[in-house]
Write a protein that binds this DNA or RNA. Structure first.
Lengths: 168, 168
DNA sequence: TTGTCTGCAAACACTTTGCACTTTT
DNA sequence: AAAAGTGCAAAGTGTTTGCAGACAA
């Protein structure tokens, strides 16, 4: 009877693919849905979680459709996708890193200083405190970045052993 | 303001100035205590809380001692001060920002994306949540870095005017 | 003296832009 | 056909490096 995960209400659709959302965004702004932009959205949507412009460009050039991708267009399109709310951009060590943003709640990271693994987590409590602190400084928070440094369980329980394999 | 780093060694009270700590650091590494490095440490120690290389260079050039300061030396010395534990470095929007590290308790920042000002704050609540989250992942937190992005009061109330405030 | 440090200019890595040509609409 | 997009090359940022002369130790 009831269809799970169907949130359609009249003309309000919810299950848009990133490509569709991007096309809408472009059209709404009088921008054009070009082959390059389509190739880039499709590629980005179907791949890795975190990437930078260079990686994307390299990947694109390995595919037949994106073989002729140019660096400026990649940058331009990534910026548009950020505007469209499809991607999140963050700058780490001077280079821009992008990650998908499907409207999920913001997540943060636990960073193990031994094995350098990133563990994702999210906390509503955290956001509440963030907003409370911001408010007390008459500051309007739009986002945040939190990295908790420490040592993960694996690395703690195996400290008896000598070195670890991973990248040094 | 020059803040000394105080701590006890047995019954002997030790109070080293940043300049002294830096000199020790340099000597211990066979590096030299040059006029430029001294000028830079003194300047950095006595001024603003947050700054970037360019600001520092500009400021230095307004003083008689630092008039001939070169960009490479500023960068090199800042890196050494970070190594020496005198400064903290963080990268915001692709630019390195430095702040003093006097061993004060951890604090975090509100970062205004308009005027790029950093506002410090600290929250015990935040640390509690941090530790709780870490614990739930069997992770031992040793520290964290949080930057809350948003817009400060000044920039919100003056958005009609095209105003580029100096960053601090 | 000896070896480090400095300043200059040039190199760098990443990103953006000017412009003539191509493509979507 | 009109307007926006693309790729190329070149220009920008912010930061780092090679090197000959300058200077602590």
């Amino acid at each position: 009877m009831t269809v799970a995960h169907d949130f359609s209400l009249g003309s309000v659709e919810v299950a848009l693919t990133p490509a569709q959302r991007f096309a809408e965004f472009l059209q709404a702004r009088g921008k054009r849905v070009t082959r390059q932009r389509q190739v880039i959205v499709d590629h980005v949507s179907s791949r890795h979680e975190h990437f930078d412009a260079d990686q994307l460009l390299d990947d694109l050039r390995k595919t037949p459709e994106g073989a002729g991708a140019s660096r400026p267009t990649v940058y331009r399109t990534l910026a548009e996708m950020v505007d469209a709310g499809l991607l999140h951009k963050m700058v780490l060590d001077g280079r821009a890193v992008y990650e998908h943003d499907y409207g999920y709640p913001q997540h943060d990271h636990l960073y193990c200083s031994v094995c350098q693994r990133l563990i994702e987590f999210s906390s509503d409590e955290l956001v509440k405190i963030r907003d409370a602190v911001a408010a007390s400084h008459q500051f309007r928070a739009t986002g945040h970045k939190l990295i908790v440094t420490g040592i993960c369980l694996d690395c703690r329980t195996s400290k008896a052993k000598s070195r670890h394999q991973d990248r040094v």
